[in-house]
Write a protein that binds this DNA or RNA. Structure first.
Length: 255
DNA sequence: ATGGTTGCTTAGCAA
């Protein structure tokens, strides 16, 4: 079972790339983030023609997440389903072939100390509570998405200038670690323990040609699924060429 | 050198 995740940075701007990637890689499941469209605008028919079901939790202009799958998804759930009044579409979950797959777009946080930063840290807490409420670490669960945190400095090409950024701040790393410690394995890390492989490069400052990247897109899995994982990769080529997303897809293989 | 890019929506925000 091949599971991929990609922050598309607008499904309208990435429509053709998204379809070309599906045809080339044929994953069983593909999680998407930052759709930037309402449900009605998501290209459900084009995905169906490519052979994929689409479970969509859209939002106008910002955010929006989806799960594409070759087999029909069951038990689709949108949002964190807690008592917080939150209009931002950042989580969708579905069961696919017995595996609970989550597509998450964790808040960026904008600037350490800002309101958006507090929302980011709180969102991680709410995600942890959601996992604990809905699942057990012995279930087959795969959490995919743009988690907007580089877990440690091996995931950052140039750690020094990023040290106190929203992507690397110790409080952000602690927040991700608390979610992971519930019972998740960093599947990409399992196969690439040395680090030095990134999933996001800023559009500015020639970050991609200089490989000034960070690994902030992740595939985390509970132990039963982590045991089934055989390989993981970043498709760096997808960041090349005209009109790429600023994120590259991450892919994991499971038996 | 206090910069630079992209996308959505149309000048300002978010990333």
């Amino acid at each position: 079972m091949k599971i991929a995740t990609w922050n598309v940075n607008s499904i309208r701007a990435r429509h053709d790339r998204a379809l070309a990637w599906l045809d080339k890689h044929r994953p069983d499941v593909r999680c998407l983030q930052e759709l930037k469209v309402i449900d009605d605008v998501f290209p459900v028919e084009a995905m169906a023609e490519a052979g994929y079901h689409a479970a969509v939790h859209g939002q106008k202009t910002y955010n929006g997440v989806a799960i594409l799958s070759r087999s029909e998804p069951a038990d689709v759930q949108r949002g964190l389903d807690d008592d917080v009044d939150d209009p931002q579409a950042r989580l969708i979950a579905a069961e696919i072939e017995g595996v609970h797959v989550l597509s998450a777009y964790v808040p960026n946080g904008q600037e350490v100390g800002s309101d958006k930063w507090a929302y980011k840290l709180a969102w991680f807490e709410r995600l942890g509570a959601y996992l604990d409420r809905r699942f057990s670490p012995t279930d087959a669960v795969v959490l995919c998405g743009d988690l907007n945190v580089a877990p440690d400095d091996t995931d950052v090409a140039n750690p020094e200038p990023w040290a106190d950024s929203v992507l690397c701040h110790p409080d952000a790393r602690d927040a991700l670690e608390r979610v992971r410690a519930w019972g998740l394995v960093d599947v990409f890390r399992k196969h690439h323990p040395a680090g030095g492989i990134y999933s996001w490069w800023d559009y500015r400052r020639l970050a991609f040609p200089k490989n000034d990247g960070l690994r902030i897109d992740h595939i985390l899995a509970t132990e039963p699924m982590a045991k089934r994982s055989t390989d993981a990769a970043v498709d760096r080529d997808e960041r090349k060429g005209t009109k790429p997303s600023d994120h590259a897809p991450v892919i994991a293989e499971f038996t």
